[in-house]
Design a protein around this nucleic acid. Structure first.
Lengths: 246, 246
DNA sequence: TTTATAAAATTGGTTGACCAATTTTGTTTC
DNA sequence: GAAACAAAATTGGTCAACCAATTTTATAAA
């Protein structure tokens, strides 16, 4: 705790002032000396005092108000909001439609026999999952990632994986997932996947691109139906289908 | 105790930087940009950045050393990003060519007057940077990010930002950057940017897509010339130009 | 070439000056 | 005397300049 010669100056000042707050009968709401008063008293610059005040503020000792002064706080530590942005389902789908359709088109020119085999296996896995009433979307995700891998470009794989991470972290998407009981649409999406794979197998870029686009458009339309349009965060009307060049 | 509008400035900056540390693949011990670099990047004074650094140090994100710099600290706050993938320059360029050309095409249909103004300002900033012999690529990056923002889709912005993060973390790219002395090609790239902006201004999707593709193709060709083809990690022959549908 | 040393550049540390929001004080008006 | 308004003082907010520790680079010696 102490003894380290390399301790930063503002820390020492902060500890000194913290002791003063806890030990000299200050009560929450009481006015604390101003930055200038402390700097004058300790014979140091105000910036240094200010840095110490910042420590005391996030530690929950002080409440600093511009133009007014600093006041003793109740003692709740301030926590940083490090949360990553929360993307809406339809904003995500618009982005996926644009990016993944391009990726599928490119993959048609780079896909290998091995990629096709793995895609076929994943498609079979999807079919079984639906037959067995499995709820998760593991195979679905796997299918889309495999297409990215078929480009032989790990940046594109990483980008698609990131899109799925964004989906999994989307609070709105989670809410939407709870409303989905019917699984009839899953067979429809499975058919979509089969069409995509067939286009890739023929190395037909335009068909692959178009099939992926249509697949995500089908997903979008289904989600639009299943959505609670009354939800204030509903973003289905904000994001229209995306194409690189109409 | 919620997100009141009157949040203090240093706290917002601290949160921004904390997100950067947790979200951009930083590992304990990694060097973090200096106070001056951040202040320049964000266009604020160093004191403000310094206050944010103090918060980050207290919260266990950073380890600040006088005369040396700031380093990502080891602690529970830092998620163990065990793997920090290192992408090659040409693999990155191939991905960017595919994705950013699609994004530029889409942006042509969504761009606003305000977006165009900001793009024009950034273009002017690029011109001045070249005239003054500024070495960094800040304005270049800004231009590409603004095009993503012109789609009005924050997912696409985040994806493009991720591409630039990958570039900044690329060891091979850093090595390549050191070999580049001539700046004649920068005026060429500036012209490319002007062409892209002009296509966007006319809301011509196909031209915008094509212009962005050609721009990144020009970058690729230049880098191919400047590369040390003897480097065992040189990946220039592995990744050919990418198109969604030829 | 390797090592030792000094100069230069870079980095965080500190300070004082000025800006903007708030509070206090003074003046006017009824 | 009370209320309304304006002026002044006080407060934290922001900035640019300079200081000191460290690192990097250049130079000299072995």
């Amino acid at each position: 705790m102490t003894g380290e010669g390399g301790k930063r100056r503002y820390q020492e000042i902060a500890e000194l002032l913290a002791r003063r707050i806890t030990g000299e009968g200050y009560r929450p709401g009481d006015k604390f000396p101003t930055e200038r008063q402390i700097s004058l008293e300790l014979g140091i610059s105000r910036s240094l005092v200010r840095e110490a005040f910042i420590v005391l503020e996030i530690e929950g000792y002080l409440d600093v108000r511009k133009g007014s002064g600093s006041y003793v706080a109740a003692g709740e530590k301030i926590s940083l909001n490090v949360h990553k942005p929360d993307f809406g389902p339809f904003e995500l789908l618009q982005a996926r439609q644009l990016l993944e359709s391009s990726i599928a088109g490119f993959a048609a020119s780079t896909i290998t026999k091995h990629d096709i085999i793995k895609l076929r296996e994943t498609l079979e896995l999807e079919r079984k999952a639906i037959d067995n009433g499995v709820e998760d979307y593991f195979a679905d995700k796997q299918f889309h990632l495999l297409i990215a891998e078929a480009t032989q470009n790990s940046v594109l794989v990483d980008q698609v994986a990131d899109l799925w991470t964004k989906r999994e972290n989307s609070s709105m998407w989670a809410r939407l997932h709870d409303r989905i009981f019917d699984i009839s649409y899953r067979t429809k999406w499975l058919d979509d996947h089969a069409v995509i794979l067939e286009a890739l197998r023929h190395r037909n870029a335009e068909q692959a691109r178009s099939a992926m686009w249509q697949h995500l458009e089908n997903v979008r339309l289904t989600l639009l139906e299943l959505s609670d349009v009354g939800d204030p965060e509903f973003d289905g009307y904000l994001y229209t289908p995306a194409v690189a060049s109409p």
